[in-house]
């Protein structure tokens, strides 16, 4: 899909060295609806969102369909994901009462992981998390959870302790408090969303640029002859980035989950 967009640009493999897309935005926006139900338009991104949902549901359903005493290999994989999120991330970060938050953390981990891996799935090649909607939505949910938990556990002291930190000298207290207020309530959700978004946008751009360029040069071998060798380093570098992006996709899902847990932990035990 992206390769087609690139090829449709006026890139001349006979004169240029790399085929950069003229308008980057077109790589990420699919505005024309594939079909509509009532007033709601199903664009490609929307369809992929529901596809990701079904994949997550199917993976979890297959993994825990039966209570097997001797698990299958797939069951072991799913169980290790669940125990990793619940024991390492939730309990390890938040504390003994962290398993309360494990449904949420497991949901975001699985959803982001599948949405990220769409970047590398042949035929889809588009990370859902490179659209601001998904990361922002999840970041806002995390923000709501840690703010609500903070008020529920500590009452008004939650905000007062942040805005008026007792451990800081009086002269600087108002400044640190202000920075902390902005940092906790504004920057946390924004950076949480933008981190995921930016990583996937960058990865998707790199892959499209390198693999797309390689593909265009290879495809034009009839017109430009030996010059299509230029596509070889782009393609090789693209494959390298492909492997690297797999690590990034998993790591970003982990970091989003871990930071959500850490933010919730700071609301549960604000003294730390």
């Amino acid at each position: 899909m992206d390769v087609l967009i690139l090829a449709s640009e006026s890139c001349d493999p006979a004169t240029e060295i790399i085929c950069a897309p003229e308008n980057v935005i077109e790589l990420f926006e699919f505005t024309e609806p594939l079909f509509s139900i009532g007033p709601f338009d199903f664009t490609r991104t929307v369809v992929l969102t529901f596809l990701a949902m079904f994949i997550v549901l199917a993976l979890l359903f297959m993994g825990f369909r039966k209570t097997r005493v001797v698990p299958t290999k797939f069951g072991v994989a799913m169980e290790s994901v669940v125990s990793f999120v619940r024991d390492d991330v939730a309990k390890g970060t938040i504390g003994p009462d962290g398993s309360k938050y494990s449904p949420y953390l497991l949901s975001i981990f699985m959803f982001i992981l599948v949405a990220n891996l769409f970047e590398l799935t042949p035929g889809i090649n588009f990370p859902l998390t490179s659209r601001m909607a998904i990361p922002l939505m999840l970041a806002v949910v995390t923000w709501l959870i840690f703010v609500i938990v903070g008020f529920a556990k500590n009452g008004l002291h939650y905000v007062l302790d942040i805005a008026w930190p007792k451990s800081v000298p009086l002269a600087l207290r108002w400044l640190v408090g202000l920075i902390e207020l902005v940092s906790v309530f504004v920057l946390r959700p924004i950076t949480l969303a933008v981190r995921l978004f930016a990583n996937l946008v960058a990865g998707h751009l790199m892959l499209t640029l390198l693999l797309g360029s390689g593909w265009i040069f290879f495809a034009a071998v009839g017109d430009i002859g030996v010059r299509s060798v230029i596509g070889l380093p782009w393609f090789a570098f693209g494959l390298l980035i492909f492997v690297f992006e797999f690590v990034v996709a998993v790591l970003q899902a982990y970091i989003f989950t871990l930071l959500s847990a850490v933010y919730i932990q700071t609301s549960v035990h604000p003294e730390h």
Binding site: I25, F28, E29, F40, D41, T43, T45, V46, T49, F50, A52, M53, V56, L57, S107, I108, M110, F111, R131, M132, A133, I134, L136, M137, L138, V141, V201
Partner: peptide
């Protein structure tokens, strides 16, 4: 690119709620 599309936002909220 930085502003969420409303249809995607709605789809995301529905999908994530189900998950």
């Amino acid at each position: 690119l930085l502003l969420p599309e409303s249809s995607e936002l709605i789809a995301g909220i529905i999908a994530f709620s189900i998950i």
